[in-house]
Amino acid sequence: MNLLNRLLREREYGLTAVILIIGASVAFIDTGFLAAGNLKDLIIRCAPTCIVACGVMLVVLTGEIDISVGSLMALLAALMGMMISETRMELSMWLGIPATLMLGTLVGAFTGALVTFGKVPSIIVTLGLLTALRGLTTLIMGGNNIDGLPDGLGQMTKYGVLGMPISVWTAIVVIIITGMIITQTALGRRLFAVGGSRYSAKMVGLSETRLKLFVFAYTGFLTGLATVVDIPRLPKIEAGIGIGFELLVITCVVVGGVSISGGRGKLRGVLLAVLLMTMIRPALTFMDVGESGEKWTRAIQGMFILLAVITDSIAQRRRQRRIHDH
C-alpha cells in the first residue's frame, strides 16, 4: 500500500509509472517502439508542446487560462511565411524570425492587457481570440498555401545540429529558463502567491497586473518560438496549422498536475504529461490495433485524460485526509 500511496500522492511518480508501463508493454509487442530512431522522433514531437506548455503552465499557475495558442500559432506561421518565403516578400530570415517572435509577444501582451486592465476573464479573451485569429489567418492567406521557406531553416528544423533539430535544443533552453523562473526568482514565488490566494498576494503588495502581463506575453513569445522552430518542418504552411493545439497544451498542463485554479503545480509533471500524451498515438500504431482499432484512437486518448484527472483528484483527497488525521 505504501508504494500505491506514493504513486497516487506524487503526480510525477504516477505519470512516470504509466509511461514506463506503456513503453514496456508496447515494446513487448514490438521492440521497434524503443528503437533509437523512434525515441528521437518522439522527443521531436514533444518539443513544440513542451515550449508552449511552459508558458501556459505559468498562466494557469496565476489562476488564468489561455486557449488561444493554436490559432495564434497558425497566424504567426502565416505571417512568418509571408515575410520570409522566397515566393512572397523574401525578407531575410534574420529579420522575419525576430519579427515573428515580436508579433507573438505583442498578441500575448494584448491578451494580458485585456485580462488585467480590461478586467475581461482570460477564458473569454482567449476564447474570442481562438475563433477570431483562426478566421483572420484564413482571410489573410486567401486560400493559398505558402512554401519556399529558406532552405537553411528547413534543414535546421528537420535535421538540425548535433543530431537533433533546433526545436529540441530550443525546448531544452526554454525548460531550463522556465524552471529557473519558477524556482530561483522572486517572480516565480509571486506566481504561486497570486494563484494560491489573490488576497494574500495583494496584502504583501505584489503587482498582480505586471505578473499577469508577463505570463501572457511570455506565452505569446513561446508560441512564436514554437512556430519558428517547428512549423518549417512541415511540407507547407496552411491555414489549418495548430487546430486543437490549445486543447492538447491545456490537457498536458492539467494532466501534469497543475491546479486549474492556480497556485499549485510542477514543471516536471507537465513535461511528463507532454511525453505521455505524445506517445499514446505512436504506441497504438506499434501495437498494430488494426483498421477498426484506429478509429478508437481518440476514445483511448480521452480515457487516459479522464483516468489521470480522476486519480489526481482521489490523490488530493487522500492528502487532505492525512492532513486532517495528523
Binding site: 486543447l247 490537457t251 476514445a299 480521452g302 485524460i305 479522464l306 484527472v309 480522476i310 483527497r317
Partner: peptide, 29 residues
C-alpha cells in the same frame, strides 16, 4: 465526477469532450 469526486468542471468536461467524441467514432466506425 464534478460533485462526488470533486474535479473542476473545466477539467472533467475537457476530458469527456475528448472521450465522448472518441467513443462515438469508435462505436460507429
Amino acid at each position: 465526477l464534478i460533485s462526488k469526486i470533486k474535479v473542476h468542471p473545466l477539467i472533467v468536461t475537457l476530458a469527456t469532450y475528448a472521450a465522448f467524441r472518441g467513443i462515438a467514432e469508435g462505436l460507429s466506425q
